[in-house]
C-alpha cells in the first residue's frame, strides 16, 4: 500500500531531510490538507480519558514521535439583547469563534446556518467585544499531544470546557504534509485512516473514530486547502460531539 510505504520511508535519512525542507516551505506558503475525526462511542458506552491514552499509544505504536502539545479554542457567541427584550428573531442564536493552534495571529468565525466562515486578524475578537452585540459565552478547548509520523502529523486530543474538566469528546487531526489539494490527498488519507482504524481495533475500545466530510463548496471553499477548511471541520466536529452527548 502507498500509505505503508510512506510510513516506512521515515527511516531513510535523506528522505527525512527532504521532508523537513518541503515541510518548512509548505508551512510558509500554504496549508496542507487535514482531516478531523471524532470519537464515536458505541451505544451505551461512555467517554473516558483511557480512550485518549489508548489513541496516543496507538499513534506511538505506528511510529509516531511525540512533538509537543497543541490547543485550539472554540468559543460560542450568543446575541446580547437590549434591556430585557428577546434578541431579534432574524439573528443567529449562536455562532462559533475559533483560534487555531497553528494560526495564532488569526481568528475565524463560523456561521453554520449561513454556510459562512470569516477569516480575520486575532484583533477581531476585541472588536466583537467592543460592539457589545454578541457575547462570548462558553469556550471549549481541544487539546492534546501532536506526533510526527512520516509525511503525516497527528494531533490527538480531548475537548473540554475551559472552566471545567468534563470530557466532552475525543478527536484527532491528521495532516498530510506534502499536499494542499483535497482531492489529490483523499486516497492517501483514506488509506492512513484504514491503517489507523485497524491498529486501534486491536485495543477493543468501545467505539471508533469517524471522519465526517464537510461540504466545503457550500462555504465557497475550493480544493486548495486553507485554514478556513480547518475551521469548517472544527464546526462540524463540534456539532457531532454535541450530538453524541445528547444521544
Amino acid at each position: 500500500m502507498h500509505c505503508a510505504i510512506v510510513l516506512e520511508s521515515l527511516h531513510s535519512p535523506s528522505l527525512s531531510l527532504s521532508l523537513s525542507l518541503s515541510l518548512s516551505l509548505s508551512l510558509s506558503l500554504f496549508m496542507t490538507v487535514k482531516w478531523l475525526m471524532h470519537w464515536q462511542p458505541n451505544p451505551g458506552a461512555t467517554l473516558n480519558s483511557q480512550i485518549l491514552a489508548e489513541a496516543c499509544a496507538c499513534a506511538e505504536g505506528l511510529g509516531g514521535a511525540k512533538d509537543g502539545r497543541w490547543r485550539t479554542a472554540m468559543t460560542f457567541y450568543r446575541p446580547m439583547p437590549r434591556d430585557s427584550s428577546a434578541p431579534p428573531a432574524d439573528v443567529p442564536r449562536d455562532f462559533l469563534g475559533l483560534a487555531l493552534h497553528d494560526r495564532p495571529d488569526t481568528y475565524f468565525f463560523i456561521l453554520r446556518a449561513h454556510r459562512l466562515v470569516l477569516h480575520a486578524d486575532a484583533s477581531i475578537q476585541a472588536i466583537m467585544e467592543k460592539l457589545q452585540s454578541y457575547k462570548a459565552r462558553v469556550v471549549f478547548n481541544f487539546e492534546g499531544f501532536q506526533y510526527k509520523l512520516g509525511d503525516f502529523r497527528l494531533r490527538v486530543g480531548k475537548c473540554v470546557p475551559s472552566m471545567a474538566e468534563t470530557l466532552r469528546g475525543i478527536m484527532m487531526e491528521v495532516e498530510y504534509l506534502p499536499l494542499s489539494s483535497i482531492e489529490k490527498s483523499r486516497q492517501i488519507l483514506e488509506e492512513f485512516f484504514d491503517i489507523w482504524q485497524e491498529a486501534l481495533a486491536k485495543k477493543s475500545l468501545p467505539g471508533h473514530f469517524i471522519h465526517i466530510e464537510s461540504n466545503f463548496a457550500d462555504y465557497g471553499l475550493q480544493d486548495h486547502y486553507t485554514s478556513q477548511h480547518t475551521a469548517v471541520q472544527y464546526a462540524t466536529c463540534m456539532a457531532q460531539l454535541m450530538a453524541a452527548v445528547r444521544s
Binding site: V91, F109, H114, L116, A120, D121, K130
Partner: peptide, 20 residues
C-alpha cells in the same frame, strides 16, 4: 480608541448575517 482587523472578503455578508 480604534481597533482594526483585516478580514476575508465575505465580511460584509458576515455582519449582515449578524443583524447589522
Amino acid at each position: 480608541q480604534v481597533t482594526e482587523s483585516k478580514a476575508s472578503n465575505n465580511v460584509l455578508r458576515f455582519f449582515y448575517a449578524l443583524g447589522y
